[in-house]
């Protein structure tokens, strides 16, 4: 029987994927953080990729503050923070980081027998909004800290093959 990766697995997987991206491409370190206090954003950049397959569907969201998005962009592009102008570069970098995170999760799901395709990333930028998961989705929130900045990776998955899903594992 195929088993859906447990929430713990997904948290560890996201942490490993983030650490890989941050260390290899940004030369920044990232650590898991407690959910509380929940990060407050005056301006937020959210990268999103969708996953769709016969047995699993869902989304991966990377929520970062505007300032962290700029720091990540500066690190990835190897420029000073003040050289990051406008939104285009920032959106492209956050998209790419989200794409790498989603790609890692997709790979893990496919290896576990849950074949799916991944969308190209999209960006949401706003100051105050909430993403509500559909009731059938199983949202998981993974909090991290990079320097002084706390951020969130939200994974919403629905395993369509209920026989394959072992609730004891999550």
């Amino acid at each position: 029987m195929r088993r859906a990766p447990s929430s713990l697995d997904i948290q560890a997987l996201i942490h490993q994927a983030l650490r890989d991206v941050f260390e290899k491409m940004l030369s920044l370190s990232v650590q898991p953080a407690e959910a509380n206090p929940h990060p407050e954003y005056s301006d937020r950049v959210v990268g999103c990729v969708g996953l769709a397959g016969e047995s699993v569907t869902g989304d991966v969201f990377l929520h970062v503050s505007d300032i962290l998005a700029r720091k990540i962009s500066a690190a990835m592009l190897a420029v000073h923070l003040h050289e990051i102008q406008g939104c285009e570069q920032v959106h492209d970098v956050v998209s790419e980081v989200t794409n790498m995170l989603g790609g890692r999760l997709k790979s893990r799901l496919c290896d576990a027998g849950f074949r799916c395709a991944m969308s190209t990333p999209t960006i949401i930028r706003a100051s105050a909004f909430r993403i509500d998961a559909a009731p059938e989705l199983r949202p998981r929130e993974c909090f991290f800290v990079c320097g002084q900045e706390k951020f969130l990776v939200e994974v919403q998955l629905k395993f369509n093959d209920s026989k394959a899903y072992d609730p004891q594992s999550s």
């Binding site: 790498m100 989603g102 790609g103 890692r104 997709k106 790979s107 496919c110 290896d111």
Partner: peptide, 9 residues
């Protein structure tokens, strides 16, 4: 170049 490291991919 791929973001997907799954065995099948």
């Amino acid at each position: 170049l791929t973001a997907e490291s799954g065995r099948e991919n």
